[in-house]
Design a protein around this nucleic acid. Structure first.
Ligand SMILES: [Mn+2]
Ligand SMILES: [Mn+2]
Ligand SMILES: [Mn+2]
Ligand SMILES: [Mn+2]
Lengths: 223, 223
DNA sequence: CTTGTAATTTAGTCTAACCTAAATATATTT
DNA sequence: AAATATATTTAGGTTAGACTAAATTACAAG
């Protein structure tokens, strides 16, 4: 009696997965904010996901949710679709990295497993999408991510950009302009105690850039 | 007050377009059969499409529907998506021609106009899909089709295959095997008065094949 | 430990798109 | 022209997934 995983449910699971990655449990409000849906509607859906067979989330009133094993598999399936699609759109159809997210957000729900496999094959089984985000494997295992926010670095530390947040096209265009893309090396020239600004030397760029917390929290690096 | 054209409506319009191409008006039952939906539900939808703003179909009780100009544009938009997608799946992802229809039937509703344009560009603005069906132009005009059913040919007539019906994967695999694909030449060696069977010599194939009415009505040729 | 605020849940509605069963209109035979 | 068969419509109902407004619970600060 495995109920159907609709497109809507897929989006819930995907966002719960991402919230779980950071904060532990995903709160009703956070899910609502991400999905642009009223919190009351989210509560209804969480109850449904928790009492489906098999349950997709673990839910206790007022305590948010975590994914069950089944829920996680379903989430990783969608995330794999999303990230392979983004890679495919960039490599095969010449999209730029700030344009792919919205397109992938719709396509992720309708491609077949065959389509997924053919993309992976055509792309040479990539492990990261154009924003550097890790692509779950075909058997739905998420590789471990070693990166930390650029915001956590201090003066004189050097690191390699691994991934950047993909949901703000304007930010992505800006990052491309200042050369902050995956696998690029950078050095922190200065840290400001007061506002948290970082002055950064990006490898291959002439002039330094100063980046605020909002941005440096969306860039992930490995030292 | 242009109401939203949902995925469901897109499918109605697409099938009404194709029914209009043959029979003039599309009947409730024919639409129902094509969409696998109860006739009563189709009536409800037709009433809605007729009274939307702008109206998408012309509907008078018990007399079936035809598309309005707006309805036709919306239909051609979906059909263009569908046929470009089929071409793209074959050319870029190595699908065989019997596998593409189902995939395209889902994707056609979710790709952006940008995706459409990029596909067309990448494919060199094709005019026919893998089954030989004509692709509406970017400004949504359907090229005129000069072909007639193979079933209408008689002994000693020669013609070029232009397109074949795309919705039965088993038939498509069979046609590929006997060499009946677009742009291939063939000659009618015999016509049977009784069952309508045609004996065909397909260019490039060793032995003749005998094809029944069900098949020869789904193959379209130009003399 | 009380009180105010923020988060969450409940209750009641709405819409799109389907369904079945019954009623009615049209078409085909006799 | 009537009788029958087929096609279509009407009526009433269901489900998924959203909404708003009101009620409740949890949490933080005094
Ligand atoms: Mn993305
Ligand atoms: Mn999505
Ligand atoms: Mn097709
Ligand atoms: Mn479709």
């Amino acid at each position: 009696m495995v109920e159907t995983i609709t497109q809507s449910i897929q989006d819930y699971l995907k966002h719960i997965y991402e919230l779980n990655e950071n904060g532990g449990t995903a709160s009703t409000n956070d899910i609502a904010a991400r999905l642009n849906i009223a919190p009351a509607s989210v509560t209804g859906m969480l109850q449904k996901l928790a009492s489906s067979n098999p349950p997709l989330v673990v839910y206790k009133k007022h305590q948010g949710v975590t994914l069950t094993k089944s829920g996680e598999k379903a989430a990783l399936e969608v995330i794999r679709h999303h990230r392979l699609l983004e890679t495919f759109l960039v490599n095969t159809l010449g999209y730029s990295w700030d344009e792919v997210h919205r397109e992938a957000d719709r396509l992720e729900h309708v491609i077949s497993e065959d389509f997924e496999a053919r993309m992976a094959e055509a792309l040479g089984h990539p492990t990261r999408d154009p924003h550097g985000e890790l692509i779950p494997t075909a058997d739905l295992v998420m590789p471990t991510d070693e990166s930390c926010p650029l915001a956590s670095l201090r003066t004189d530390e050097t690191a390699t950009v691994k991934r950047v947040s993909d949901d703000d096209p304007a930010l992505l265009r800006h990052l491309r302009e200042i050369g902050v893309i995956p696998e690029v090396k950078l050095t922190v020239k200065n840290y400001s105690e007061f506002d948290g600004n970082l002055t950064i030397k990006v490898s291959g760029q002439k002039s330094n850039v100063v980046l605020g917390r909002t941005i440096t929290n969306q860039i992930f690096v490995e030292k």
